[in-house]
Design a protein around this nucleic acid. Structure first.
Lengths: 211, 211
DNA sequence: TCATTGGATGAAGGATTCTTCAGGTTTGGA
DNA sequence: TCCAAACCTGAAGAATCCTTCATCCAATGA
């Protein structure tokens, strides 16, 4: 991968006709498939194009380079997760603290598991395509959502600390990642869901009542 | 990176004379430096050799390929962290639960921060060189250490759940990673240390007394 | 001293990969 | 029907990389 990092991430061209929209979608899906079947090392634009049934040239018409291609898929995935969690936070306002946390955590776990394959595959490239910066942005979004939700809790004694929420989110994401990278079994997922709820609940309880 | 994954990870040759030991150490340190200054993409064996002041041939005499080189550094780093945490667990036996957790967590954070640069750099390649498998091994080690420690706690009502310990460790590592990838400031580290202690304490308290 | 083993060198073989661009094909409105 | 715009193609240019191997230098101990 000789490309110099972080240059030209924007999509090059926007689909206008219907067929090109199909092409772009095919490329996007092929990206995931190639990542899944060939691994991050042997992920090449040529392979993606072949899998998508288009030529390399076409691919490069929409994505200026390999990184942009991967970044687009990563961004898409993370946005989906973020939206799901945000919606859960909206929906859990005014409920008891423990219930809030439960709904938020379960929404997160479920959103991730919805496309566990993509999640797992993306971990392997995230760090090389500006993932951490993106994660930072998304985390901030989620922190705000969680913060707003917590402020409506009837049974929280203190306003929640921003840093504590960040920590909780990072911990949650970390545990999830650990599971996905290990290859999750249905049983393990169920258990993690439970444990993560308990973890976040007990931490938030402690963080909103102490200090 | 055309190399097929996971082949020949073992070191090729063991240093016998003193000068070769120096060489190997230089290569190891150069690996980190190149990772840090050039990024994971532009990490090449040639560059490492140049930085270490040896020829490519020499490098390949000790490490069969690029992955082995990176893996060795990763393994070394993780072993160091694991040993530190294990020692802390040894040392914290029979103390109150909260104190145990505090010492374990602080040992972990400190060990990671000790060489924050390496930690940060390694995140960027871990996934591509068999990191997850290694993490699995190390996690198991740590879980056993923590488990043994917790069983000596005078104030824990129930024997701790294995899965809960795994979850705690994964959460802890995840939060740490998040911080290191964001570029940690001294203040942020201090805060994370506190919060992580609180998080683990409250979770373990809940997990050892409920169910 | 000198033969033997350890250690180091770096040009070159063998492979890939990314990305471009000149030119052909399809679409959709006038 | 016709044409301009939108799309698509894929061979080829331009870089890099990884790894080997024949060869030379250094150390060691008999």
């Amino acid at each position: 991968m000789p490309a110099s990092a972080l240059i030209a991430f924007e999509a090059r061209k926007t689909p206008i006709q219907a067929r090109s929209a199909v092409t772009v979608e095919a490329i996007s899906e092929a990206t995931i498939q190639v990542l899944l079947t060939h691994g991050a090392e042997r992920f090449t634009t040529t392979r993606v194009a072949a899998r998508a049934g288009v030529s390399v040239g076409t691919l490069h018409q929409y994505y200026p380079n390999k990184q942009a291609l991967l970044f687009a898929v990563l961004e898409n995935h993370m946005n989906h997760v973020a939206e799901t969690v945000e919606a859960a936070c909206e929906n859990a306002r005014i409920k008891p603290l423990a219930e809030m946390i439960r709904e938020m955590v379960e929404a997160f776990v479920d959103a991730k598991m919805e496309r566990a394959d993509i999640s797992g595959a993306l971990y392997r490239v995230s760090a090389n395509i500006g993932g951490p910066a993106l994660i930072k942005r998304i985390s901030e979004r989620l922190r705000k959502a969680v913060e707003a939700m917590l402020q409506t809790a009837p049974d929280a004694k203190l306003p929640p600390d921003k840093f504590a929420i960040d920590t909780m989110l990072a911990a949650m994401a970390g545990a999830m990642r650990s599971l996905l990278e290990a290859g999750p079994s249905p049983g393990a997922v169920r258990k993690l869901r439970e444990q993560l709820v308990l973890l976040c609940q007990s931490y938030m309880m402690a963080a909103t009542s102490v200090r």
